[in-house]
Design a protein around this nucleic acid. Structure first.
Lengths: 203, 203
DNA sequence: AAAATATTTAATCAAATGATTAAATATTTT
DNA sequence: AAAATATTTAATCATTTGATTAAATATTTT
């Protein structure tokens, strides 16, 4: 067997294809992406893509799982951190999301639109509800304000953090140039937690 | 000429195709939609689609323009109403959006993802900035709080109203069933303006 | 009713596109 | 080095899919 070499190159080539697939799928979506686009982006022959991943669909599933994890994986550890206060969690979530989305601005719109196309892709739909409702975050929230519906609170938090990126293609031309947009997002790292705390404190 | 009959049937058939196209495009997006899907949905022959609209692309442009107008057209009149206060505008925008989105929940994700695919589709990009910055709404906002960046304020308002629908495929399974989700959205009609006013009043 | 025009259909085309194959090249193992 | 295995490529296939065509049917005008 050509194992040592195989693994070195395998990783390199396979990773190259996955990287390219990630770029092309995220930019165009499944339906608008061509396997030839991906092959070209990866600098490899089209047949290689099928050699490594069997089909466009299989490759997509792998990328999609990674992207979903990238988008929502941030939340879990922060929501369940027993060592931080609720206020600190708001700050951490906001900072994590905005930092991540500044690097991957087209991630939310990709994931959300593909899930719309194929809702089954969300594997652990039921588990997600449990994980959330039993999280430290929700416990702290209820402890502090038993009258605030956690779902509303979470929608507001995610809406303020994710929406500017979901709507970037519309908002950015209105706001101005790319740099102006980036600066707004930087400001929101401080501002969003302030606004969320207003909701927590308001009588 | 067969004018009278033509117009009666034309409208009916042409409208039937547009209606079907709107449904299929909105549900699947341009790339995943097949002209055959649309023809079937409309209950007509595939050739008819090209007879009436020349091409998939042309038909899409028409639908897309309508959908963009549906999504953002609500805003203009409310933002520029000189007879309402800022608070009333917040209430009107929220109520209009939530009512409209309860009927067309997949509209935002469709429009935003298609604009991502083809940003040029936003025709009046520069005009939009002027319209907004010179609106009564922004004037009232600056009058009330010169220290609040209108772009941040607008992002929050739109984020809280639109995001729950953009993320519905993810959030709804977590929240529970369809009806539970609808009730949450009904509640937000009252709640979002309250939260927005908190931001306006906070010292 | 006849002619002109508009609408609709079945059949077909041509290009795009996902996938495969068979052969060539490179790498590893013996 | 030889054999075995893994990787890569060019060429090709089969299906999907947007679009067209020519003929049939319906409608309107004369």
């Amino acid at each position: 067997m050509a194992k040592a070499k195989k693994e070195a190159l395998d990783l390199s080539t396979e990773e190259k294809i996955k990287e390219a697939a990630s770029i092309v799928f995220t930019k165009k979506g499944y339906g608008n992406a061509r396997t030839r686009d991906i092959a070209e982006e990866a600098g490899i022959n089209l047949a290689l893509l099928n050699y490594y991943f069997r089909s466009k669909e299989k490759l997509f599933q792998i990328i999609m799982a990674e992207r979903i994890d990238k988008l929502f994986g941030v939340l879990g550890p922060i929501l369940n951190d027993g060592s931080t206060t609720l206020d600190e969690k708001l700050e951490k979530i906001t900072e994590s999301y905005i930092n991540m989305l500044l690097e991957h601005p087209d991630l939310p719109i990709f994931v959300l639109s593909e899930i719309r196309n194929n809702p089954e892709q969300l594997s652990n739909r039921f588990q997600a509800r449990r994980n959330l409702t039993e999280s430290v975050f929700i416990k702290q929230l209820i402890e502090r304000r038993s009258d605030i519906n956690p779902f509303h609170f979470l929608m507001n938090l995610l809406g303020m953090n994710l929406f500017p990126f979901v709507a970037k293609p519309v908002l950015q031309p209105i706001v101005g140039n790319e740099e102006a947009y980036r600066q707004l997002m930087e400001q929101r790292k401080k501002l969003v937690p302030v606004w969320m705390k207003l909701m927590l404190d308001h009588t």
